[in-house]
Amino acid sequence: MTIEYFSERNPGTKTLPRSLATKAGNFVFVSGQVARDEDGSIVAGGIEAQTRRTLENVAHVLALAGCTLEDVVKTMVWLEDARDFDEFNRVYGEFFRENKPSRSTIQATNMVGTKVEIEAIAYIP
């Protein structure tokens, strides 16, 4: 089995000892993504803006590994505030309309102070 590592490029995270994604065989494991823009700054705004940017970042990392959100089979979500769950789900549903991956969602404080963090696992047949 071939393993590929996709490195960090965002100024806000490139010093972290991790890969953006790891492709192992037909699976792609995306490291936790948050609402950082291209210059590494955290996107201002509430849960809607941060969820949207976080999922755009997940999609970008998947593209580096040759797949899309359609290939995602599992996500893990950390929400800072459980009261954001309904609004989070509304935005999340815009990104996963047809193929809805399995998902775990918990409440936790994020290391960088964002309202949401999302990991993903994709499978490329």
Rank of each mutant, 00 (worst) to 15 (best):
I3D: 04
I3L: 07
Y5E: 10
Y5A: 05
F6R: 00
S7R: 05
S7W: 00
E8V: 04
E8C: 14
E8P: 07
R9K: 04
R9Y: 07
N10Q: 07
N10D: 15
N10P: 07
P11G: 08
G12L: 01
K14D: 12
T15I: 05
T15P: 03
L16M: 13
L16P: 11
A21F: 09
A21P: 15
K23E: 08
A24W: 12
G25V: 04
N26I: 06
F27V: 09
F27W: 11
V28K: 02
V28R: 00
F29D: 08
F29Y: 13
V30E: 07
V30H: 04
G32E: 14
V34E: 12
A35Q: 06
R36W: 04
D37S: 11
D37I: 11
D37N: 15
D37F: 06
E38F: 13
E38N: 10
E38P: 09
D39V: 08
D39H: 01
G40K: 05
S41V: 08
S41R: 15
I42C: 03
I42P: 04
I42R: 05
I42G: 06
I42D: 01
V43Y: 05
G46D: 11
G46Q: 05
I47D: 03
E48P: 10
E48T: 02
A49F: 11
Q50L: 03
R53D: 01
R53M: 05
N57H: 04
N57D: 03
N57L: 03
V58K: 04
A59V: 03
A63L: 13
L64F: 12
A65V: 08
G66C: 04
C67Q: 02
L69R: 06
L69G: 06
L69D: 06
L69W: 07
D71R: 13
D71Y: 09
D71V: 12
D71M: 09
V73I: 13
K74Q: 15
T75N: 06
T75K: 01
T75P: 08
M76K: 14
W78F: 13
L79D: 04
L79F: 11
D81H: 12
R83C: 04
F85Y: 13
F85L: 14
F85W: 06
E87I: 02
E87R: 04
E87L: 02
F88M: 12
N89K: 00
R90P: 04
Y92F: 01
Y92V: 00
G93F: 01
F95P: 01
F95T: 05
F96Y: 09
F96K: 02
R97N: 06
E98H: 03
N99T: 12
R103Q: 09
S104Y: 06
T105I: 15
T109Q: 08
T109G: 15
T109D: 13
V112W: 14
T114M: 00
K115V: 11
V116E: 02
I118V: 12
I118Y: 00
E119G: 10
A120N: 02
I121Q: 06
I121A: 07
I121C: 14
A122P: 12
A122R: 01
A122E: 10
A122W: 07
Y123W: 10
I124M: 06
P125D: 01
